[in-house]
Design a binder for these strands. Structure first.
Lengths: 116, 116
DNA sequence: CGGCATCCTTCTGGATACTG
DNA sequence: CAGTATCCAGAAGGATGCCG
């Protein structure tokens, strides 16, 4: 909460949270980012394998959106057959803290669920 | 990434991130949590006002889901007319770090967007 | 390999009106 | 005030097939 605290109204922060979620919205976006993030560089088919349950259609679509939002950079490698590499942009890397917090929370959350 | 780093495979963390997002999914859920979080205790109509654009239907629905997931506690106050107070549970409070990080990132992100 | 196109079903969520 | 009910449009997203 830190420096964003003030007496009357937190609408700015609440809208900011909403803005952030807008970019990260979609069933798979955060998982995709975390896959790329953990490996620094990651190919399409690798991400497809990392993110359990995602279809190639969705992966393609959400990667494109992430690219448009300048969070991810796409590089076509001149292999045979071609492969495409994805990595976080400088800007995308500013999400690293959030990603690792989410991972930590998710791991705890799974314990809570299993514990019941 | 800290202690989650390992040589081969980050599927655990990637799935954990997905699990976390499952709970936080929905167009408004994180905004609702942040509203309650910033004010400690918050009534239905206050949240409705905090979270710009949300309908009472969606607020009701997502609050119910958050309650089921034990992130939020609902208390009916014996006022006239009645009012209902929402607050984070102990468990819900474990999300505070993530929320404040998202707010901070969202504020920066807005600057980036406007800057273009 | 890394997509795009199409079809089709399910889910999301807005508008509006009604209840205790 | 704090919801619930209904109606409905549009978005999300899975399955499958094709293509350079």
């Amino acid at each position: 909460m830190t420096e964003y605290e003030c007496q009357s109204g937190h609408k700015t922060e609440i809208m900011a949270v909403h803005d952030a979620m807008d970019v990260l919205n979609g069933k798979w976006k955060v998982s995709i980012i975390s896959s790329i993030c953990y490996y620094s560089k990651r190919r399409f088919s690798d991400i497809l394998n990392d993110v359990q349950g995602i279809s190639n259609k969705m992966l393609s679509k959400e990667l494109k959106e992430l690219e448009i939002n300048k969070l991810v950079k796409r590089t076509v490698l001149d292999t045979q057959p071609i492969s495409v590499q994805y990595q976080l942009t400088e800007y995308g890397m500013t999400l690293q803290t959030i990603i690792s917090n989410l991972a930590e929370w998710g791991i705890q959350h799974r314990k809570v669920i299993i514990g019941k």
